[in-house]
Simulated scan of single mutants.
Amino acid sequence: MIPYWQAPSLKLGPLTIEPFGVFVALGIILAARLLVRNAEKQGLDPTPLADYAPWGVGIGILVGHWVHLFFYHPEELSKSPFQILKVWDGLSSFGGLLGGIIAAVFFFRARKLRFNDYADVFALGVVPGWAVARLGCFAVHDHPGVRTDFFLAVAFPDGPRHDLGLYDAAVLFLFTGLLYALRNAGALKGKLLPLTAVLYAVSRFLFDFLRATDRAYVDARYFGLTPAQYGCIALIAYGVWGLLRRSPGGAAAPPSPSGTMRAAR
């Protein structure tokens, strides 16, 4: 059994740095660096990814908060009419993913770039970054599960429980290893993102059945399922479609003399 230990906050004068925020920031930094590095390895121009990053993060945080507020805990709307703007007060990782997807759709369309050219890059960058961010959930134990005597249970103050933050981080690290192994083997080229969608959606759908329902602050259920589980169904549909569809033809533009690619405008 894993001891219950909560990472402390860091006080810097009037500023309080929460451990969850530290892990999220580290995850974003890691994802951004891996996006650029993998784009360069695939002979793609990394500039659009660097330009996309602040939009993806910003819109991801905003939509992640709205999903948390409107779907998981709508009772919080009664706190204040400005609750929809308090992005630091509750965040859904699935909502953040949705926000990042929305930002990517509009950004790549505005730049007249094919997102499919960068799809593998996104899988190889976002998954490990998401895994690190999920360690923040484990650090503060904000996703308690049902009571259990499983050997990976965390000794919560009210008894041993599954810790979904730990489980989510663990499977994301496993998926990271698989994705990089496939990339190095040259397998499923152009299909890593839909593969990721299926793998993560199946694991998350099953994990959400382990979420606690006997505590004061629990996730909302709709017809017995969490909002994330409905999102998982959509992700599986996208992933299966992406794995079965034929890859469109076309190759990336040749590298410029400086060794980097010219951005398609």
Rank of each mutant, 00 (worst) to 15 (best):
L44D: 00
I29A: 15
H68Y: 15
L30P: 04
L77I: 11
G43N: 06
L44R: 00
P74L: 08
V63W: 11
L69I: 12
N38V: 02
G58S: 07
G64R: 09
R33V: 08
P81N: 13
P74E: 13
I59Q: 02
K79S: 09
L77F: 09
Q83L: 12
I61L: 15
F82V: 06
K41H: 09
Q83F: 13
I29K: 10
I84T: 09
G43C: 05
D51H: 07
A50L: 11
H73Y: 15
L34K: 13
K79G: 03
A50F: 01
P54W: 10
G60T: 11
P54C: 08
K41L: 12
E75Q: 14
F71G: 02
K79F: 11
A53V: 14
A53F: 13
H73P: 08
V63F: 14
A32H: 08
T47Q: 04
V63R: 15
P81G: 09
L35P: 01
L34D: 05
H73F: 13
R33P: 03
I29T: 14
V67E: 05
Y52E: 01
L35Q: 03
I84C: 04
L35G: 02
D45L: 00
L34F: 11
G64C: 04
D45V: 00
S80D: 15
F70C: 12
F82C: 00
I59C: 02
W55S: 07
A32M: 11
A32S: 14
L44T: 01
Q42A: 13
V57Q: 03
L77P: 05
I61V: 15
P54T: 07
L44Y: 01
P81E: 14
H65K: 08
G56N: 06
W55G: 06
L69W: 13
W66Q: 15
I61A: 10
P54A: 07
P48F: 01
F70Q: 13
E76H: 12
L35E: 02
L69R: 10
G60P: 07
A53S: 07
V67D: 03
G56K: 10
G56P: 03
E75Y: 05
L69A: 10
R33Q: 15
V57E: 00
L44H: 00
I59K: 06
W66S: 06
N38W: 13
R37H: 14
I59F: 08
T47W: 00
Y52W: 14
A32W: 14
A53E: 02
D51S: 08
V67N: 05
L44C: 01
H68C: 06
G58C: 01
D51T: 03
L49K: 07
A39E: 11
V67T: 10
V63S: 08
L44Q: 01
W55D: 02
V36I: 12
G60S: 12
Y72Q: 11
D45K: 00
T47M: 02
L34C: 07
Y52T: 01
L49Q: 07
P48K: 04
R37T: 03
G58Q: 05
E75I: 07
V67K: 09
L30T: 12
G43K: 04
